[in-house]
Each structure stands twice: as structure tokens, then as C-alpha cells.
Simulated assay, not measured.
Amino acid sequence: MFGAIGILVTIGAVFGGYALAGGKIGVILHALPFEMMIIGGAAVGSYVLSNSSDVLKHTLRDIIRAFKGPVWTGQDHQDLLCLMFQLLRLGRNNPVELEEHIENPETSEFFLAYPRILADHEVVSIITDTLRSASLNYDDPYQVEDMLTKRIALIKDEELHVAHALQSMADALPALGIVAAVLGVIKTMSAIDQPPEILGKMIGAALVGTFLGVFLAYGLVAPLAQRLTAVKKHDMSFYEVIKSVLVAGLHQHATNMCVEVGRQSAPEQVRPSFISLENALRDIKRAS
């Protein structure tokens, strides 16, 4: 919603200001399709050339993601903490029964209670792999924390590939605009025998290329890349919450304290309140 508003405000301010200043929109509109073909086509071609098939496959999905915003909500963070509480408590009371849940999460009553979490393979994998390692005596808190940090860093690099590719495109667009402008100047020079009013329109059309390259770069593509980066990093905090709870658990803190450590590691805008989480945990204790 806000992304679409931002685009409309940017376009309206630039072209509206130009028109109010006495500029002729017709000159831009006449040259726009051809300049867009040169600049946009070169940008897309360069994007395809410089990126892997995985990045290309995920580009449209991630652009939509940038407009939709973060996946994980405050309720999801509370659900995650409740799930971690149940797993840690069971692991301390009955390690053998815990193995059934981590080996088959798709049939676990704990995981099934939170379908949005269960649907994310990476989240489930981090939880189950770490608990499985702990059950096999790989339970040094510092080693596990280092392992999780490296794993999350790898996920982060993969998740930000599209954002980095879009930023690279934004960096290239002004230069591609100059390419389009130079081609326009070449066209103008080939018609040097034409009257000044015709040459003026041709030069104006050539300069549209420079304008379009800079406008697309700094008005649209670069902000989109920054927005996507912010959304991805926001969602990556979900993994940090998991890491905080698991590491606290390996330090043998009380289960409630482990969950509180995870709660406080969540971003403020999606962090469940202490009272809300406490009530949810109380309901779980009563039901068990």
C-alpha cells in the first residue's frame, strides 16, 4: 500500500512540477517509449546476464514481497515463542518423546498448532536440527550459537540476492540513460540540416534518456531495493529469536526465562507484550 503511494507521489511530484513550470509533457511522452525500450531493455538484459537463474526466478516474488511488507507478524512471534516453550519444556521432562516431534514435525501436535510456522521449511529445519544436535550431545552453548550464527548469515545472503541485484541495476541505470542520450545526439547530428525548431525537439528527446535513467535509478529502483532489504532483514529477526531461545535453553536457564530472552530479541514493532505472552503460556500450561 505505502509502496504504491510512494510511486504515485514520486511520479506526480516530478512530472507535475515539470508541467506547472511550463514544461511540455508532449516532448517527454513522444520520446518515452523509445527511450524506455533502450534503457529498460538494456537494464533487463544486463540483469539477466549478471544474475543466476535462482535470482531471476525469485525476482518477481521478491518485488511483490517488497510491496506487501514483512511476512512475520507480532502474533507469529508470540506463536513461535509458545512453540519453543513447549519444545524446551518437553525436552527437559521427556527427551525421548521430544524426538518424535523433531523427527516428524508435520505430524507433531505442537507444530500443527501453528500452521504458518510449520509451512516455513527453513524455520522448522533450524528448530529441529538444533534440538536434534542437542539430543546427540552437541550441546555446547557457544558452539551451537556460532553454528546458528553462521547458518543465519548464509540464509541472509541468499535472501538478499535479489535486493543486491536490484541495487546494481539502479547503479547502472544513469549510465544507460547516457547511452540513450548519446544515441539521441547521434540522431540529431544526422539531421543537422533541419530547421532549429526540429533540432530543438530532437535534442529535447535525446535528453529524455538522461532524465529517464536517473529518474528510474534514484526514484524507483534504488528505493525498491532498499525497501526489499528492510523487509527481508525484518523477517530475518524471526531466526534470531529462535537462536536466542535455543542458546538460552542450552545454558540451562528456566524455560520461561528462555522464552523471555527470545521475546526481548524480537524487533519492537512485532515484539509481543510480556502480559500477552504470559497469558498465552499460562493457557498452554493449563491445557497440558
Rank of each mutant, 00 (worst) to 15 (best):
R151A: 06
I152T: 02
I152H: 00
I152P: 01
L154Y: 05
I155K: 08
I155N: 08
I155S: 12
K156A: 14
D157W: 12
E158S: 13
E158H: 13
E159N: 13
L160V: 04
L160E: 10
H161E: 15
V162P: 10
A163I: 09
H164L: 14
Q167I: 13
M169P: 11
M169L: 07
A170N: 01
D171K: 01
D171Q: 00
A172E: 00
A172R: 04
A175M: 00
L176S: 12
G177M: 05
A180L: 05
A180M: 03
A180P: 09
A181S: 08
L183A: 03
T188Y: 06
T188G: 07
D193Q: 15
P195V: 07
I198T: 13
G200I: 03
K201F: 04
M202S: 12
M202Y: 05
M202Q: 14
I203N: 03
I203Q: 03
A206C: 05
A206Q: 12
L207G: 07
G209C: 04
L212E: 09
L212H: 03
G213I: 08
A217I: 06
L220Y: 05
V221G: 00
L224D: 07
T229F: 09
T229A: 15
V231Y: 10
K232G: 12
K233N: 15
H234R: 11
D235S: 00
S237Q: 10
F238Q: 07
F238C: 04
Y239H: 08
